[in-house]
């Protein structure tokens, strides 16, 4: 936020374009194998005790037993949902950190979580609707509305204070909407009862017809995000240099905003606000592969999906025979990871 050149710029100029990016490839390979293991674990681990042999048998040939129902109607949908949500949150987090050049930014900063929460609460309290489909629509609409508002307030301007304006607008909108949500839930405890379960973030009760909404929205967001990697590298050099390199800062910013809203909005609508994924994933990837946003952008959906699935699996196993919601576990394991990264960073820079 100050005038001296940030380490981001210093690193991008020494971009690894000359040497072959072995680190990034190795990381991609490691993440892919990790994801594969995690998907298998997500199908075979849970409150219901089943041997992996039995799980494979039922996956090959489903029958009418309760075990088969658990795998096909419970574990498989939540695994797919976890993959989608994690990938979307990882991508959205990377975009927002690249866009704001703020290492503490997470998708919630654009007011997306608070916008979704507010819309869900208003839907619950005004219309008394506690239907998963309506909640999905309300959350999507609320997060989109909020992102547009933040963009108008802080994102559209040019100049070197632009990042600060964006972050401040996001924080201001988030806080005031959070207050509105607080007022409603404080006085209408029936709403609070429904809201609190949504607000912790959970994968185990996907609303019907979810994937027909979720897949195209997340797909579109992902395509935009992945196409922006190189332009974000240019933008990291400052608006003037970016313009000279052929990237339109205003256009890149608007597209990033759109992608973040689509990705984070739909993920939040589907599973509730799940924190820390969008914050931790880009940090961890920067440590592993360097500052090139193109690589980070491609790897972030893999890392995000793996983190969300690992959290979900842990949540199924630590309070047997009950479950902990994925949002709670994510925050629980996300905090030490983040602290570790901060300590690591500060040791390096010393």
């Amino acid at each position: 936020m100050n005038d001296r050149p940030s380490p981001v710029i210093a690193d991008t100029t020494a971009s690894p374009a000359i040497s072959f990016p072995w680190r990034a490839l190795l990381t991609a390979l490691a993440l892919c194998s990790l994801l594969l293991i995690v998907i298998l674990a997500s199908l075979s681990l849970g409150a219901r005790d089943m041997s992996s042999h039995h799980v494979v048998d039922l996956l090959m040939a489903p029958d009418s037993s309760a075990d088969s129902v658990v795998i096909w109607q419970m574990r498989l949908p939540r695994t797919v949902l976890g993959l989608l949500v994690g990938a979307a949150l990882g991508l959205a987090g990377t975009l927002i950190q690249a866009l704001t050049r703020n290492p503490l930014a997470d998708p919630g900063l654009l007011g997306i979580n608070s916008g979704a929460a507010f819309a869900v609460v208003v839907g619950l309290s005004l219309f008394g609707i506690d239907d998963a489909g309506v909640r999905l629509a309300a959350a999507l609409g609320g997060s989109a509305f909020c992102a547009v508002l933040v963009y108008i307030l802080g994102g559209s301007s040019n100049g070197k204070n632009q990042h600060t304006r964006l972050v401040l607008a996001g924080v201001a909108i988030s806080v005031s909407l959070g207050a509105c949500t607080g007022i409603i839930t404080l006085f209408d405890s029936a709403v609070f009862d429904s809201y609190r379960f949504w607000a912790v973030g959970a994968l185990n009760s996907p609303p019907p017809g979810l994937y027909s909404v979720l897949l195209p929205v997340i797909g579109l967001g992902a395509v935009i995000a992945l196409s922006l990697g190189g332009k974000l590298n240019a933008l990291a050099l400052g608006d003037d240099l970016a313009l000279a390199l052929g990237a339109q800062p205003v256009q890149v910013r608007a597209l990033s905003f759109l992608a973040i809203t689509l990705l984070c909005g739909s993920a939040t609508a589907a599973a509730g606000p799940i924190g820390f994924v969008g914050l931790v994933v880009p940090h961890a990837l920067r440590l592993l592969v360097g500052q090139d946003w193109r690589w980070i952008m491609w790897l972030s959906p893999l890392a995000g999906a793996a983190l969300v699935l690992v959290s979900d699996i842990l949540g199924r196993l630590i309070v047997l025979p009950g479950e902990l919601e994925v949002g709670i576990v994510c925050a629980l394991i996300g905090t030490p990871v983040l602290l570790g990264l901060i300590i690591h960073f500060s040791r390096r820079s010393r």
Binding site: G46, A47, R316, E323
Partner: peptide, 11 residues
């Protein structure tokens, strides 16, 4: 009381 996962509803 005991919280159970939906996977263990048969309890």
């Amino acid at each position: 009381s005991l919280d159970i996962s939906p996977e263990r509803l048969d309890m």
